[in-house]
């Protein structure tokens, strides 16, 4: 089968985001961008499925501006066979992204969509579930283990208080949690090779999908700052302050 891996270009997770002075959003100009960490895990899982012989082809897809090509080159350097860029400069919500991905799925006919559980910029945790709903496919969200076997996927899912195991009939959508695997690094030779792998660009407008936003951003603000605390010298002083000052201990 073919595995489709949606990847998102986001502000690097090591960067402390700064809210724009006019409250319109978060500064992204001149900020280091990388592949969303959960997407790296989803891609790694797809590559492992190919290495185990469960998949024949891994296709990375990204939706966004021309610069999202870099993210796709990274995906191919990690091992994706080819890539598709759905090009648009519009701000997209998960619902719109899911609809564009649905169009790609209908064209590519993958047996599995492996994607991250959430993007670390909008922290939405919704695109995989919406895509599964649109396709009428089963979903295995927050996956910590995936076993593909005879037309189905046995997925261990991280839930409150433990792990739940579900069996999904393929095709399915799986969203990767942190513990699913440790993604590989792209080696220099593979980065060079990735430059020659096919990257197809499709204009989002050509897909005839309604991507108009449903949400209007009223404002973006800094969260309230915490007041600076004090350094105590001893356990005794700490316990004393927790009792008398903070009043959180009896």
């Amino acid at each position: 089968m073919k595995v489709l891996v949606p990847v998102k270009r986001v502000v690097d997770y090591n960067i402390k985001p700064r809210v724009a002075a006019d409250g319109s959003g978060v500064e992204t100009q001149g900020v280091k961008m990388s592949m969303n960490p959960f997407d790296e895990i989803a891609l790694e899982e797809a590559l492992r499925l190919r290495e185990k012989g469960h998949a024949q082809e891994v296709v990375a897809v990204s939706i966004g501006p021309q610069a999202a090509q870099d993210t796709l080159r990274t995906a191919m350097a990690m091992g994706a066979d080819r890539a598709i860029l759905i090009r648009t400069d519009a701000e997209l919500e998960p619902l719109a992204v899911a609809k564009l991905l649905q169009a790609v799925v209908e064209r590519e006919q993958p047996g599995l969509v492996s994607m991250g559980k959430q993007a670390i910029d909008d922290d939405m945790n919704a695109t995989g579930q919406i895509l599964a709903a649109k396709l009428g496919w089963p979903q295995g969200t927050f996956a910590s283990e995936v076993i593909v076997d005879n037309g189905s996927a046995i997925v261990s899912r991280e839930i409150d208080g433990g792990v739940e195991v579900v069996s999904l009939t393929l095709p399915a959508v799986i969203t990767a949690d942190l513990r699913l695997n440790e993604p590989r690094y792209a080696s220099l030779p593979n980065i060079m090779k990735a430059r020659k792998k096919p990257l197809e660009t499709i204009e989002a407008d050509s897909l005839d999908v309604d991507i108009a936003p449903r949400l209007k951003v009223v404002s973006v603000s800094e969260p309230p700052a915490r007041e600076a605390g004090v350094i105590v010298k001893s356990v005794e002083e700490l316990v004393n302050k927790l009792k008398t000052e903070a009043k959180v201990l009896p």
């Binding site: 809210v19 910029d121 922290d123 919406i130 951003v217 969260p223």
Partner: peptide, 28 residues
């Protein structure tokens, strides 16, 4: 379009949620 992890309700259609690991709050 769902809204996840809502932390404040400002009206029937207006909500606040954290983005960027809680480094910003967006009202939508």
């Amino acid at each position: 379009q769902p809204l996840t992890d809502v932390i404040e309700i400002k009206g029937d259609d207006t909500f606040v949620r954290p983005i960027y690991a809680g480094n910003a709050l967006v009202t939508v």
